[in-house]
Nucleic acid binder design. Structure first.
Length: 552
RNA sequence: UGCCCGAUAGUGUAAUGGAAGCACAUGUGACUUUGACUCAUAGGGUCCUGGUUCGAACCCAGGUCGGGCAACCA
């Protein structure tokens, strides 16, 4: 899949074009600001694509900045995983790795500056009282006591907060804006809270930590971020973002909001993902059914496909839902183009070729990619007994059926034309094996007399097959929108068949695959060697089936 | 009964006052040593009502519908 920009423009790029043309900006600086409190998922991929992709398009730079302002929620474990996932997507922040926590001193100074301007004050209301004074969207708030404290007193109180002179939650620092604003976020928002927690970076240096609204705009400003992109729910925070930077007379970064990625059959809420992991409903964060980047990587999805999806969904202010079929189509395009072919039988029945010599083994050459001769050929062993797919035999098959039925000749791909003479079934009526005869003149699969054979099926020599664990993954949910039913929990829609573990018969060369190697098992689907895969105990994950066949 | 934002085929998007396109999905057909791929072909759209204009998806007004905002989270 090509990496070229399929995205022409979007409303943010239009703004950037105008900023550059007017001279308001001379460079483009963006940032991706994850909080290290969870794993990245495909929704984050959209933000990463927009942040890094925009910088790339304009020859600017994109910073990776960990927004670590809440030590209670954050953990070092996530820092490594987040970096790995961004790199996997193919982005590089170079020297520009930053931490919000490295700006704590500046943020403190900025808070003092606000106090000195009479634009911030210490408030001793409890959180319940705080809510009460703030009012509700339809009614204005009222001014809390202590709002008109002197600068000196506020300075003293704030310093006492910093020095640990108050219990956690005893008071907060608030911006002094307008308790009657129709925008709740402007009703004297909290900007610093007391929280005795050990920070992964600053240890126990601080017992006060800045709130998101205060911290984020300052982080952007310090770094010279010109265009700060975030999701739609922050739209109402923008006036506060602008207010703080203006009052501080700091570099004016600007915030732009876009809609989150939504996909059918996928749930992207951190809380619910955590629930799946904690309740053991999936194998972990990197379970191939998870929409996390590590899970999708393990499943066999490619970074190119994820970025292509981001390009196609674009960047708008309208919150919609993209059909998963769109993504699957992109994945199949990529995998069809870039994965080598192999043969594997996932639900085997045996074929015995009665007129083929008992001990003979032939090697047949088959192409690694039907459209790419440069990918070369490999040899597969052929012998008297083969495994074929159970679905490739049918009693009294209709004419359009591709596989065997008694009396029908079928091409064994790359090998011979074979006719089914009889079928053997067990007591329950299940097919056990097919007795067949082959045409020795049809070596390679072409009949000497030019007769047409409509069907070609895949196979593996029984004598040479490698037994392999195959994990057949399917959608995690049975409905498009598991969150759509207010009466039910999303877990009620978990697909009981989202994982089926089977033993398949593989052509022998496949055991040598490396974890992460991708193949198309012909006529079956796209598969990827799992992290657990070893030559001695092969494990393959099904990424996707082939595009659903037309009805017969 | 507040404030902010949005609305283009089933879905995701383009068209920035001048012929409403593209992709996915769906139907039909062709090709095929993968029922894949590929190719051909069909149906289907500007939320509503007005206004401005020679001309409106685009500008204006009013409405409708949808989303967001009431954590000492981000």
């Amino acid at each position: 899949m090509s990496n070229e920009e399929t995205q022409t423009t979007n409303f943010i790029h239009d703004i950037i074009d105008a900023d550059l043309a007017s001279g308001k900006r001379t460079e483009v600086v963006t940032r991706f600001p994850p909080e290290p409190n969870g794993y990245l998922h495909i929704g984050h991929a959209k933000a990463i694509y927009l942040d890094f992709g925009t910088a790339e398009k304009y020859g600017g730079r994109c910073h990776l900045r960990f927004d670590d302002t809440n030590p209670e929620a954050e953990d070092e474990e996530y820092v490594r995983a987040i970096q790995e996932d961004i790199k996997w997507l193919g982005y590089d922040w170079g020297e520009h790795l930053y931490w919000a926590s490295n700006y704590f001193d500046t943020m403190y100074e900025y808070a003092v500056r606000l106090i000195n301007k009479g634009k911030a004050y210490v408030c001793e209301l409890s959180s319940e009282e705080f809510k009460e004074y703030r009012g509700v969207p339809t009614r204005p708030g009222k001014e809390p006591p202590g709002r008109d404290r002197s600068v000196e007193e506020n300075l003293e109180l704030f310093e006492k907060m910093k020095n640990g002179g108050f219990e956690d939650g005893a008071c907060i620092l608030r911006a002094k804006i307008d308790m009657t604003s129709p925008n709740l976020h402007m009703r004297d928002p909290a900007i610093y809270r007391i929280k005795r927690a050990t920070h992964h970076n600053t240890g126990d240096k601080w017992c006060i930590y800045p709130m998101y609204d205060f911290a984020h705009c300052i982080e952007d400003s310090i770094e010279g971020v010109t265009h700060s992109m975030c999701t739609l729910e922050f739209e109402v925070h923008r006036p506060l973002y602008d207010w703080i930077l203006q009052e501080l007379e700091a570099f004016q970064s600007r915030q732009y909001e876009f809609s989150k990625l939504n996909l059918t059959y996928i749930v992207l809420s951190k809380r619910r993902l955590l629930q799946l992991v904690n309740e053991g409903l999936v194998g972990g964060w990197d379970d191939p059914r998870m929409p996390t980047l590590c899970g999708m990587r393990r499943r066999g999805f490619t970074a190119a496909a994820i970025k292509k999806l981001c390009a196609i969904v674009g960047c708008t202010k309208f919150e919609g839902i993209t059909e998963i079929e769109q993504f699957e189509s992109i994945v199949r395009d990529d995998l069809n183009e870039n994965s080598l072919r192999a043969m594997a039988v996932v639900d085997p029945i045996k074929v015995v070729i009665d007129n083929y010599p008992e001990e003979l083994v032939e090697e047949f050459e088959v192409p690694n990619h039907p459209q790419k001769e440069e990918e070369g050929k490999r040899t597969v062993p052929f012998s008297r007994e083969l495994w074929i797919e159970r679905t490739d035999y049918m009693d009294d098959a209709p004419n359009k059926f591709k596989g065997f039925t008694i009396g029908r000749e079928v091409r064994i791909r790359g090998a011979y034309l074979v006719t089914c003479d009889s079928v053997e079934k067990d007591a329950a009526g299940n097919v056990v094996s097919l007795r067949c005869t082959y045409d020795p003149e049809s070596k390679g699969g072409n009949a000497p007399d030019g007769r047409k054979v409509r069907s070609t099926i895949h196979w593996v020599s029984a004598k040479h097959a490698v037994d392999t664990e195959v994990r057949l993954y399917d959608r995690l949910y049975t409905v498009e929108n598991p969150l759509g039913d207010k009466e039910k929990d999303f877990k009620d829609f978990l697909n009981p068949d989202s994982l089926k573990v089977i033993t398949a018969k593989l052509e022998p060369g496949l055991a040598q695959a490396k974890p992460g190697d991708r193949y198309q098992f012909e006529r079956v689907g796209y598969f990827c060697a799992d992290l657990d895969h070893t030559p001695a105990k092969p494990v393959f994950n099904r990424t996707l089936t082939l595009r659903a066949p037309r009805k017969m």
